[in-house]
């Protein structure tokens, strides 16, 4: 089966002349359809840069990135927005909800831009809101919602247009553990039932243990890969912790 995402020799260099910083150094990997991949690494290792580059929010300095047959490193700016809207979904640490819109309106936005019919949109919103358990919150404004509710709203928005791939940047970073568990369970259920492909950046081992596979990144390079395989989530969590300890990152820092 052809891979959904193919990353070939991607570099990302910040700055010019002597003051350059190589944030990504010759990164290559693939993600298949229906995977739930985590990216872990200490602060400043380049994991957020990687996500931004893959998510087309930032452009790589060199290398190729294919999502199915599109080389996204080559798409022009205006088309990029269209590509992003129809193929990708995003969940951010700080939710990125629009304060002036209700939850329902926030969720429907990507469909509205795609000029879907009203009945279509209504149906889809109800469906996704049920999945994330926020039907009763749809008429509320973001400032009336808790962090977890906001993140579930943001996740609904990311998933409503059935994207080929969902990028999540520290989605649980600002959530308490119950809300975090809630969200992660929903995401992994979606991944199992609908084969939604998800790539999640996190430095939280607990969050990472929900993934099927984990890429470790260090100083801009891929350093290690962990696959959950037949392990239970708890066992996998222990494996991740062991790995983090082995890398020598401050274990205190990652939990």
């Amino acid at each position: 089966m052809e891979s959904l995402l193919v990353v070939n020799n991607v570099d990302k260099i910040y700055g010019k002349g002597v003051n350059t910083l190589k944030a990504l150094d010759n990164i290559s990997f693939t993600i298949d359809h229906g995977e739930f991949v985590g990216v872990m690494g200490p602060s400043g290792s380049g994991k957020s840069t990687l996500l931004n580059v893959l998510a087309t929010i930032d452009a790589p300095s060199s290398g190729e990135i294919y999502i199915e047959n599109d080389n996204i490193a080559q798409i022009k700016d205006e088309q990029l927005a269209d590509f992003r809207r129809s193929n990708l979904g995003f969940i951010f640490q700080d939710y990125n909800l629009l304060d002036s819109l209700t939850a329902r309106e926030n969720i429907v936005l990507p469909l509205a831009i795609a000029k879907k019919s009203v009945s279509d949109m209504t149906e889809k919103v109800d469906e996704i809101a049920t999945t994330f358990g926020i039907q009763s919150l749809l008429e509320k404004y973001p400032y009336q919602l808790s962090g977890g509710q906001k993140q579930r709203t943001a996740a609904s928005r990311a998933l409503i247009a059935d994207p080929k791939m969902v990028f999540a940047d520290e989605p649980t970073g600002a959530l308490d553990s119950k809300s975090a568990t809630d969200l992660l369970e929903k995401l992994s259920k979606l991944n199992e039932l609908h084969e939604t492909t998800i790539m999640m950046v996190t430095h939280d081992a607990y969050a990472a243990s929900f993934c099927r596979r984990i890429l470790f990144i260090q100083d801009g390079q891929l350093s290690k890969e962990l696959i959950r395989g037949v392990h239970t989530r708890k066992q996998f969590f222990q494996l991740i912790l062991d790995e983090l300890a082995a890398i020598g990152g401050d274990a205190d820092d990652v939990i």
């Binding site: 809207r85 909800l97 002036s100 831009i113």
Partner: peptide
């Protein structure tokens, strides 16, 4: 901030 959110979720500049 609002516009950068819109940009992030893939709203085209034309819109």
């Amino acid at each position: 901030g609002t516009y950068s959110i819109l940009h992030n979720i893939g709203i085209p500049k034309k819109e």
